[in-house]
Design a protein around this nucleic acid. Sequence first.
DNA 1: ACAAACCCCACCGGAAAACCGGAGTATACC
DNA 2: GGTATACTCCGGTTTTCCGGTGGGGTTTGT
Lengths: 140, 140
Amino acid sequence: MEYACLALIELAGCYQDAEPLQIRQIAAQQHIPDRYLEQLLATLRRGGLVRSQRGAKGGYVLAQDPWQVSLLDVFHCLEGGEVGSSQDDRTGQQTAERSVMREIWQEAETAMCTVLERQTLQDLVDRCNACRQADLMYYI
Amino acid sequence: MEYACLALIELAGCYQDAEPLQIRQIAAQQHIPDRYLEQLLATLRRGGLVRSQRGAKGGYVLAQDPWQVSLLDVFHCLEGGEVGSSQDDRTGQQTAERSVMREIWQEAETAMCTVLERQTLQDLVDRCNACRQADLMYYI
DNA sequence: ACAAACCCCACCGGAAAACCGGAGTATACC
DNA sequence: GGTATACTCCGGTTTTCCGGTGGGGTTTGT
């Protein structure tokens, strides 16, 4: 979840370099176990968020421009495709209370999604830079 | 999480009866395993949301009026008290990316909470009744 | 050919949620 | 008081998810 976003931020930061970033580099930069990150990037690739270049000098590149990818896209990609469709339907227990609860949960989730929707990878990169700037100010 | 809310809705619906509701009844009504519901209600009791009456003819009653309890209260009660304090802090890896990600997550959570905050138990009961009415309409 | 990189599948371990079971203990009612 | 009711506390089991690891295989540039 979080690791995938960190990797994407890293990729977005080097987007204009046109050089693929390797798993090892991202993992070292963000202090993430590389073997695990590999799986996450595979998921992101299957979701069409990144493209991979195999072989020597290979690596990963963002499939789209950083300002076209929202955090919501990342979430939908990671959450297995179907999120709120975890219906049991066992014996068809559809009490009024249950459906109302689902409604509320849906509303809450939607509220969360709208927040994530208006945060693109570019925004995150910018915020990171601003954050680092502030850190430097602290030193002076 | 969800089960606790269902139970509270049930309790809110019988609030004016001044008769305590038993676990068995709630469990049967909402198709929840009763032994599990027992634990949830114990948590809600410790959180001050419900009161329990022991012995024969005992059961549970809402501790406050249904319109004074929001879903957010329920959540805070169930989420163990401390929610956002799950920081690892292992080796102090506080990269700019990580703190930015935490910020976003916080924002998303806040958005969800504000939705939950303006839904009281009374609202849910009303919505349930409206839902059932609509179901009856369907029959005609 | 060879090494650097991605690719795939399967497993492990811990944490949390969901779910029982049993031994108490308080209360109502006779 | 005695008994039945029904909550209370404590522990154990199963399931699920996430982070993490291992051991292969396949593609690609030099």
